[in-house]
């Protein structure tokens, strides 16, 4: 808005001004990366100057080198793929069940009475406390990771779907009914879109819990994956690989965030607050 106002005040804008205006717009998204870049720079210089011992924290170059080495050997791509698929499978299974329960309990009083109390009680158990039990049940099998991640993402998706469905404007529902919308059409055109902003909030929480659960599960009970790779490296004091694993988790988390943002922009384009995003 401010840019429009200034450009109106200066109808005879010089090419220099036009250039500056464009470069400002191009640089805006890059500003967020200044702080991480500075951090890496300080980290690298401390390591190069010998202030930072390799046995405490390897330099960024060492981490990069480890990444290159493991990429060539095929270990890194394989472990990242395993972790990514585990996270996705857990999210899909737990998210789908949470979404289904959230819808059912939001739409049907009977279903709500039957299951909500149980679910709310179960919610207060930290799901990571179940790890000993899960190892007894599933060993260190894929099922153990899937179970833990699914359980972790279930609750935020359930709670926010339920809240979203319940907070749909009853005036809109009455309007839609008066125009003859029933059941599925009412759900698809009024209730689901009305609940969607809240469901996205749940999805963001769920993604955070998804990575957290996976890291813990892979560190304690796994034979593959990024977490396992880090634990193996610790055994052999390969700190560069340990740090690499942490960086990979950060990048995967950022990737998930980018995907959700894109989804939100596509699905919630009608929200005025998102227009400037």
């Amino acid at each position: 808005m401010a840019d429009i106002v200034t450009s109106l005040k200066r109808p005879l804008r010089t090419p220099w001004n036009a250039l500056r205006f464009d470069s400002k717009r191009l640089l805006a998204p890059a500003i967020g990366w200044i702080a991480p870049a500075l951090l890496v720079l300080v980290w690298q210089s401390s390591a190069s100057l010998g202030w930072l011992s390799d046995s405490l924290l390897p330099s960024p170059f060492a981490v990069l080198a480890a990444g290159w080495r493991l990429t060539l050997s095929g270990d890194l791509p394989r472990n990242v793929e395993v972790s990514f698929l585990r996270a996705l499978a857990g999210l899909v299974v737990g998210g789908a069940i949470g979404f289904a329960f959230g819808l059912a309990n939001g739409l049907s009083r009977a279903s709500d009475h039957a299951t909500d109390t149980t679910l709310q009680m179960a919610r207060n158990i930290p799901h990571l406390a179940l790890i000993p039990l899960v190892i007894v049940w599933f060993g260190i099998d894929e099922a153990a990771k899937l179970f833990l991640v699914a359980l972790g993402v279930f609750f935020p998706i359930y709670a926010n779907t339920l809240h979203g469905v319940r907070s749909v404007d009853p005036q809109l529902v009455e309007m839609a009914r008066s125009y003859g919308m029933r059941r599925f059409e009412l759900f698809r055109r009024v209730i689901l879109p009305g609940a969607l902003p809240s469901i996205f909030v749940g999805l963001r929480y769920a993604l955070g819990i998804m990575w957290l659960t996976l890291i813990v599960a892979e560190t304690i009970a796994a034979q593959s994956g990024v977490g396992y790779m880090a634990m193996q490296a610790r055994e052999f004091l390969q700190l560069d690989v340990v740090v690499l694993a942490i960086v990979i988790y950060a990048l995967l988390g950022k990737l998930a965030d980018v995907v959700v943002r894109a989804l939100e922009r596509a699905c919630l384009a009608w929200r005025p607050a998102l227009h400037g995003d």
Binding site: Q171, L172, E174, M175, A176, G180, R189, V190, P193
Partner: peptide, 28 residues
């Protein structure tokens, strides 16, 4: 006879564009 109602509030679906909101009025 399906009486139509104009409410105190517009009650438009915020996630549907203007033309889709008008189409809601066609009922079945």
């Amino acid at each position: 006879v399906a009486p139509r109602v104009m409410f105190q509030e517009p009650r438009l679906l915020p996630w549907a564009n203007v033309i889709a909101n008008v189409e809601v009025g066609l009922g079945a």
